[in-house]
Nucleic acid binder design. Structure first.
Lengths: 299, 299
DNA sequence: CGCCATGCATAATGGATGCTTATGGACACG
DNA sequence: CGTGTCCATAAGCATCCATTATGCATGGCG
């Protein structure tokens, strides 16, 4: 920007009032100040902008062109300032970029985002599902604004806050002998236990809980390791066994009566789902609104 | 304009380079200067514009909005500066406002203006015909940029310059006994002399010339006073008499053979047609170009 | 024409602003 | 942990800008 805004403002005031003194009065400065400003502008642009004859000041051809252009600049600036001021209020807009690991990514998060978006049409949602570590890394690099993950190694540059507590239950077919019961750990030895692959958040939770009960997962002799949550769920619905799984992941099945749950004595498995944010990043209004919305929904 | 251009420039440089130091380098100032400028801008707008975390500086939501708006402002400003610079060259534009008194206004001036406009399509022409005094007044008041008039009283605030010398001839029908001759003043007493109304420029010229020859217009006993130039010309074409008239006004008739001219011994009438400009007014390029064009045409 | 009022230009001066230098604190990397 | 990089902050100085005072030009009036 080569033009000095005060000079431009002074020039415009002179054009409008056709007088240096009156322009000065309007701007709250003295006449010589206006005189100097306009002269500086004329020097800078290398053109005579005003005809000064006796009592009357009039723009030259170049002066008129500058005045018109200045009005456009001023209008645009006013608009910009209004947008900035209005930015702190009014309708939410922009794109909310969220990453989630597979667990929360396939259950709670999409639903919450869809509901939120329905209430805030001006916001565009971008959800990407990755493994926990990738989500965290991308949040740290500011590629994502929010992450929703289970257990994660601490990572510099990001902050974790509890988002929701995810209860892990033992799912079984609805007519199963475990349905609605509280069983012993030993009862599990005679059942076909379906487990998820290494690295799945729920598997880690269960391993930790069993360890606390003096058992190891492999002592239960699981013969079906079926990858991720959705595979395990489907197998149980189809009657091939039972599995530990996030209650949130089977809410619909429970409501539909296609699955039932049991509890295991001595085990109280749950895990924390965390919200991840980049430590030095100011939140967008959309992100803040989503988080508040989600917390209200999750209770 | 509330925004300081240097602060805006500093802010934009930081956004682009994602670094205060690099922005400072680009702007040719020190890092603290940029730091202060951006902070001043943040304070003025009441919003945090940049996330400053470790090695990396990133715009906040508001910062991004400001940056985008600033780019629009910069683009518009660049455009304006280009227009101003180009204003001294390239195609002529704008409206050229000319006033003329009836004599020149009905002959030379319209033709010149039309020819000029044909060569400068970007220029719009506005010609208004009035009596001499009105033309001069309006030029003085900057309502017209140029005036073209015959004899006029000096007027403060306007400058007169010779535009063309208008020869006054005695017009008669083509087969008339005067056609192509040099007659005596006395020969006019037996002719039907048609004169223009009081105030017409040509009439004044003739009165002055006759006075110099020791005669008065009324000694010639004119019985037809026919208003202005065009009325007189028509009457002569129709054979009702002879009249003194501007040669320029009958060039077409002479070429067509519908009128002829004679000279009168002892009379050499002509008058100066002046160009009038407002004394304190800078000329538009279009006006300058027209004047140069006209002078070249008038030789 | 002369006088007076008005209004812009210019010079001198003082205060505010803005930039620089020096330094401290935070962060990233080896 | 030590080092280097980078932004923030404080202090000091130079520059800039606005003000006051004054000169010059123009316009209006008697």
């Amino acid at each position: 920007m080569l033009m000095d805004t005060r000079q431009l403002a002074a020039f415009c005031a002179v054009v409008e009032r056709k007088s240096f003194s009156q322009a000065a009065e309007r701007l709250g400065v003295t006449q010589p100040a206006v005189s100097l400003q306009v002269r500086s502008l004329e020097k800078r642009l290398g053109q005579k902008l005003l005809d000064r004859s006796g009592r009357r000041v009039e723009p030259t051809e170049a002066g008129l062109a500058l005045y018109r252009g200045a009005q456009r600049l001023l209008a645009l600036e006013g608009q910009l300032l209004d947008e900035l001021a209005a930015g702190s209020e009014g309708e939410l807009s922009g794109t909310l970029e969220v990453g989630a690991s597979t667990g929360p990514g396939s259950t709670v998060v999409p639903v919450l985002l869809c509901e939120f978006q329905r209430e805030n049409a001006g916001v565009a949602i971008s959800l990407s599902i990755s493994d926990t570590q990738t989500v965290v890394d991308r949040v740290a690099e500011r590629e994502l604004e929010l992450g929703v993950v289970g257990a994660a190694r601490r990572h510099r540059g990001v902050a974790f806050e509890l988002f929701l507590r995810d209860e892990v239950v033992l799912a079984c077919p609805p007519g199963h002998r475990f349905a609605g019961k509280t069983i012993d750990l030993d009862d599990l030895r005679d059942e076909q236990l379906i487990i998820m692959q290494e690295g799945a958040g729920v598997r880690q939770v269960i391993e930790d809980e069993l360890r606390g009960a003096g058992t190891r997962l492999r002592d239960l002799e699981p013969r079906l390791e079926l990858g991720l949550q959705e595979s395990a769920r489907s197998a149980v619905v189809a009657g091939f066994g039972v599995t530990f799984i996030s209650r949130a992941a089977i809410e619909a099945d429970l409501a539909a009566g296609t699955l039932a749950v049991a509890r295991v004595k001595g085990l109280d498995p749950s895990r924390e789902i965390s919200l991840v944010r980049s430590a030095g990043r100011s939140s967008t209004r959309a992100a803040e609104a989503f988080v508040a919305f989600a917390r209200a929904k999750l209770g």
